[in-house]
């Protein structure tokens, strides 16, 4: 799990941001390369569709480029970038005509999603175990989809990005207390929805 860039990387980021603010697209390209995977993963978990996630990540980075002159170096670049991308994703989810909860786009290509070590079907894993893991994945997907966009964002930033409360508050634009409260309700909802799976996790 990643927990944000170290201070050295942060100072590199700030240097790249300064150059980007001066119109240096190559510097911005470096920032994009550095964060595109994490940003895409975050958006993908929010919208659960590859193409939408790709387009929204594009929109997020493009918006960041257009807003670079507003970056005041008061937070890390990646927190600022997450704020933009999270808002883009939440806005998209709100505007979108939602499908019935729990249903997903069948076009999502699962083969393109690299599973983690914990759930990756390794060589020699039995077909039954693979099926169990696929089922677990589906159940988790369905449960996450039932969270509101705001709760989903907070859980993803905490559990996947490993952000601290204040970083999440900065990224989603709310107080630390609200972040903690949203985390509580999101976790309890997931706990309820996945109660029968806990023994298998």
């Amino acid at each position: 799990m990643q927990s944000g860039p170290p201070s050295g990387a942060e100072s590199d980021d700030l240097d790249l941001v300064r150059r980007s603010q001066g119109g240096d697209t190559r510097a911005f390209d470096e920032l994009v390369t550095k964060y595109r995977t994490r940003i895409y993963a975050m958006v993908y978990q929010m919208v659960r569709n590859e193409q939408d996630a790709w387009d929204l990540a594009q929109d997020g980075f493009f918006k960041a480029w257009k807003s670079l002159d507003k970056f005041r170096f008061q937070s890390s670049f990646y927190t600022w970038l997450y704020r933009i991308v999270t808002n883009v994703s939440i806005d998209w989810l709100r505007k979108r005509t939602l499908r019935p909860e729990g249903e997903f786009d069948d076009t999502i290509a699962r083969t393109d999603i690299e599973p983690t070590a914990d759930v990756t079907p390794k060589a020699g894993v039995s077909p039954q175990r693979q099926m169990e893991r696929a089922e677990l994945r589906d159940r988790l997907d369905a449960a996450i989809a039932k969270l509101s966009p705001e709760h989903r964002a907070v859980v993803l930033l905490k559990e996947v990005e490993g952000m601290q409360y204040h970083e999440i508050a900065d990224a989603v634009g709310c107080s630390i207390g609200t972040v903690m409260s949203r985390l509580f309700y999101a976790r309890k909802k997931l706990q309820t929805l996945l109660k029968d799976l806990h023994e298998n996790v």
């Binding site: 799990m1 390369t33 595109r36 995977t37 895409y40 993963a41 993908y44 978990q45 590859e50 790709w54 990540a57 290509a109 393109d112 999603i113 690299e114 599973p115 983690t116 070590a117 914990d118 759930v119 677990l136 994945r137 988790l140 996450i144 859980v155 993803l156 559990e159 996947v160 976790r187 997931l190 706990q191 996945l194 799976l197 806990h198 996790v201």
Partner: peptide, 18 residues
């Protein structure tokens, strides 16, 4: 266990055509 499952499931999504 729920947190572990979420981390295991959600992390490391690969971006197509980076």
């Amino acid at each position: 266990r729920l947190k572990l499952a979420l981390r295991g499931h959600l992390a490391q999504t690969r971006m197509p055509n980076p």
